[in-house]
Design a protein around this nucleic acid. Structure first.
Length: 423
RNA sequence: GGAGAGGUGGCAGAGUGGUCUAUCGCACCGCACUCGAAAUGCGGAGUGUCGCAAGGCACCGUGGGUUCGAAUCCCACCCUCUCCGCCA
């Protein structure tokens, strides 16, 4: 959610910023509701002031006195008026809040112009793409793949996009997760094991609701949502709380399975491990002082990159353009790993700054050192990292002529042996 | 799931229809005393929102209701604790 003062005071700046995201938003309609709300507020407050004054006067009068009775009659009319005007106020306020939720976060000035994914800027490239054998094949074509990553049985038991991981398949997932968590711990992130079902208030605070309602699995009869990312429970940890400025930045990481319905993306990049309804991911999260957020974003991105470097996987970093930025982000980098078998880049991490967009919805603030009024923190997050696509690249890039997959040195202590075998 | 108790400011804890503008205490900040500190004394201090400002209004778990007037009475829901049941 944006600062209401910002849209009131500088509507043209807000309009221009939204235009950079290429979203169609009727800001004037929002401003009109805001004006109506403020007019009603003044009216109701005046009436309530009258009531309070009468209340004080009546407290000093004898209960049955003629003056008292006359006051009661007089205030009955005011009371009815308050009820009527208050109902209008509440209705307008609800409309205003609803309208505010439809406004996207504003992009940072450093975000490049652009409309589509093709307009994203390649920020940096690491490792040698050509070092991967030209004969590499897509991971789903590797002999024995179906034994370790059993999609057929997953479909039978649950549905498409819910594979079983078996033997070395299960083991490599566990090794990657533990490696990720250990690396994130070394980088100063405190490990958290959060709930993976969240309520509607939490999903609203991080921006999944109401914008992406259909993308989450919802449970009945309790109406809880299966988390699409650990970002949701992690960010909400501090919902409605005030943090000491001295504690900033707060850095946390969490592993959770992630559940995504991926409605509308059927048939697109869905082969093998590329896009699943359930997958494993470690998420990095920071709550920071507003003056440091973009420095912290660079550091967070580097924390995610370091893991890819340790796994010796070629990757590149994209700086997302305005049109591909997303609703809630003010700036975003995507990390893409080179998939030597598919001959394409796979997104394995998305590192974003939200400024106060989430913290305003979630009411997460810090108490300034000088004892002043609480201020909203900035929130940042990024994957560190998502397992299936890292795994896809690993399988493809490291497949040897003998049919085994060479495990990167950094991962060997976790995996327990130097090769993964499909036999 | 059943029965009972309870949710009030950072913490603790009064308040059962009208100066509640929410008592007292602890912790906190400032000042005084002190070489400095402790102790003591005096003063300050919640959150949100509207307003250029003066100031106003709201907030006692959440949402409704009764009333001229609700922290207080009524209804529903949420959460916490105790006991019972079930259970990894």
């Amino acid at each position: 959610m944006l600062d209401p003062k910002l849209i009131r005071d500088t509507p043209d700046l807000v309009r221009a910023a939204i235009a950079k995201k290429h979203l169609d938003v009727d800001l004037d309609a929002v401003l009109a509701i805001d004006a109506a709300w403020r007019a009603l507020l003044q009216e109701v407050e005046g009436l309530r002031g009258k009531q309070k004054a009468a209340n004080t006067a009546m407290a000093a009068l004898p209960k049955g006195s003629p003056e008292f009775v006359a006051k009661v009659a007089e205030m009955k009319a005011v009371s009815a008026q308050v009820k009527e005007r208050e109902a209008a106020l509440n209705e307008t306020e609800a409309k205003f809040k609803q309208a505010m939720l439809t406004l996207p976060n504003l992009p940072h000035p450093s975000v490049p112009e652009g409309r589509t994914p093709e307009d994203n800027v390649v920020f940096s490239t690491h490792g040698d793409v050509n070092a991967v054998s030209a004969a590499a094949k897509p991971h789903w074509e590797i002999p024995g793949f179906d034994k370790l990553f059993d999609f057929a049985r997953g479909s039978k038991v649950t549905g498409a996009g819910f594979p079983f991981y078996v033997g070395d398949g299960a083991r490599i997932v566990r090794a990657l997760l533990q490696f990720f968590l250990d690396e994130d711990g070394k980088a100063g992130y405190t490990e958290v094991n959060p709930p993976i079902l969240v309520n509607a208030a939490s999903a609203t605070a991080t921006g999944q609701l109401p914008d992406k309602e259909g993308q989450m699995y919802e449970t009945t009869p309790d109406h809880l949502y299966a988390v699409p990312t650990a970002e949701v429970p992690l960010t909400n940890f501090f919902r409605d709380e005030i943090i000491d400025e001295a504690a900033l930045p707060v850095k946390r990481c969490a592993y959770t399975p992630c559940f995504r319905r991926e409605a509308g993306s059927y048939g697109k990049d869905v082969r093998g491990l590329n896009r699943l309804h359930q997958f494993d991911k470690v998420e990095l999260l920071k709550w920071v002082h507003p003056s440091t957020s973009y420095t912290e974003l660079d550091l967070l991105r580097d924390d995610a990159e370091r893991i890819l470097r340790k796994l010796s996987l070629p990757y590149r970093v994209l700086l997302m353009c305005g049109g591909d930025l997303g609703f809630v982000q003010s700036k975003k980098y995507d990390l893409e790993v080179w998939s030597g078998g598919q001959k394409r880049w796979l997104e394995v991490s998305s590192c974003s700054c939200f400024e106060t967009f989430q913290s305003r919805r979630a009411q997460i603030r810090y108490r300034p050192k000088d004892g002043g009024k609480p201020e909203l923190v900035h929130t940042l997050n990024g994957s560190g990292l998502a397992v299936p696509r890292v795994l896809a690249a690993l399988l493809e890039n490291n497949l040897q002529p003998d049919g085994r997959v060479k495990i990167p040195a950094a991962l060997v202590p976790y995996f327990g042996k130097e090769h993964l075998t499909f036999a």
